[in-house]
Design a protein around this nucleic acid. Structure first.
Lengths: 234, 234
DNA sequence: GTCAATAACTTGTCATACAAATTTGCACCC
DNA sequence: GGGTGCAAATTTGTATGACAAGTTATTGAC
């Protein structure tokens, strides 16, 4: 279903404005919003629009309308803050920050995976590596396949905490289209380097070589950081 | 402000009914709700009530009203799953898993902190170390002060991602009372070792010695893992 | 079968009116 | 001066009618 761009309705505009006033602290829990009649004047809209905006605020858990008394701001339920919700993947510095954290986690994950992997997990890692290489032969970097390889390694730690954190990072780790599609096509040299790095990581893990696994993963992720830092300097 | 019990308004009744139909799967994403005119008939209420209920559904992220076309059910935003929600801090293996992840993150955080700390952050780290030591002289391990020291180091990375992950881990990292209070009092030798390890970490960070910082933090956290693994064996 | 025009339908907004509940103001009493 | 009761004012909840803006379906011409 194709959704065309839409103008904001008056209800949404009033709603956004009132919500901003509440969340910015202009109204505190217990405070009473201006009456509907007053809001109608202030915003220059009909009472219908005001009421629908208030109905939405109520659904947001921000206000409690009381007949005869007014619309009162209430204590918001503690919002579940989504992890990494302020990551801006269009900013290079944001991606570098993520890569630094990722390097910390994945370097250690590679080492643990080299000590703990099962045969089934080895098989999965090999399959994921093949998917990465096949993607590279086709259209360049297949970010999803790349992510799946890293996840397969994290799973081979047999520590669910590593898997969990990488999943959290997952949606943020894939660069936005504008970041990778804006320049020249990926050079064959770079693809070959990535392929080599991936194979070094996988080989070290499958060889059970903890030190080499650590070093190979660190090399790989430092390379990504270096690339982003170069972009930062233009 | 005393809130007396309230009768549900018609809007809330219609809203609850429609929400139930959507969340129970009677309407799937992409489906169109009955028109306002139709809902007015079905529920025997005015169009005002229907519209306010739909405004609330929209605020709930369940529907997308489109002028001229209808009110369409949309894919709900993925519910934020609380991170590490299945960690059981009463299980030794669960704590070891956390410590492994923590080791990965905090070893690298110590290294970054040694390269990036500001004077104000140094001051904070020193203050946090003092709080840990003062707590140790009193009642043994002060876990909150311990956590604050680790957080101060994470903050000195000047990468908000490290701070964010440690905060997530925060509530889980403090051992449950049953785990540390059930045995003998903490030995003075152990306290002295912790104090020494903490000081080695802080000194390496403040000396700007990345390698030493990494090694000291790794030593410290491996020590904790070792202690838990001994407990696992009885 | 395709395209354009028109009609029908649907949501968005405005206005008016009345009902139900709360708050405020005032008169009265102790 | 303080407390109580009642009416008026205020505020939210609901209903109704009308018109605007946009989408979808239908119909007729080519």
């Amino acid at each position: 279903m194709q959704m065309p761009p839409k103008r904001k309705t008056l209800v949404v505009e009033v709603l956004d404005s009132l919500r901003a006033q509440i969340t910015s602290g202009q109204y505190k829990p217990g405070d009473r919003l201006p009456s509907e009649a007053r809001l109608t004047e202030e915003y220059g809209v009909s009472r219908t629009v005001v009421r629908e905006a208030v109905a939405a605020l109520r659904a947001d858990g921000l206000v409690d309308p009381q007949r005869g008394a007014g619309v009162f701001v209430i204590e918001p339920e503690p919002a579940a803050v989504a992890p990494f919700s302020d990551v801006d993947t269009d900013r290079l510095s944001s991606m570098i920050e993520l890569l630094e954290l990722r390097a910390a986690i994945e370097v250690e994950a590679a080492a643990l995976a080299s000590q703990r992997r099962s045969p089934a997990q080895e098989e999965k890692i090999i399959g994921a590596l093949q998917a990465v290489n096949e993607g590279a032969e086709g259209s360049g970097i297949n970010h999803e396949a790349d992510f799946n390889l890293h996840m397969a390694i994290a799973e081979a730690t047999n520590n669910p905490r590593f898997v969990e954190v990488l999943k959290m990072l997952g949606a943020q780790m894939i660069p936005r289209h504008g970041l990778t599609s804006s320049g020249a096509p990926i050079s064959p040299d770079y693809l070959a380097l990535l392929k080599q790095e991936h194979e070094q990581i996988v080989n070290a893990v499958l060889d059970g070589d903890e030190v080499a696994a650590r070093a190979a993963m660190r090399q790989h992720l430092k390379g990504s950081q270096t690339r982003y830092r170069r972009l930062l300097r233009g």
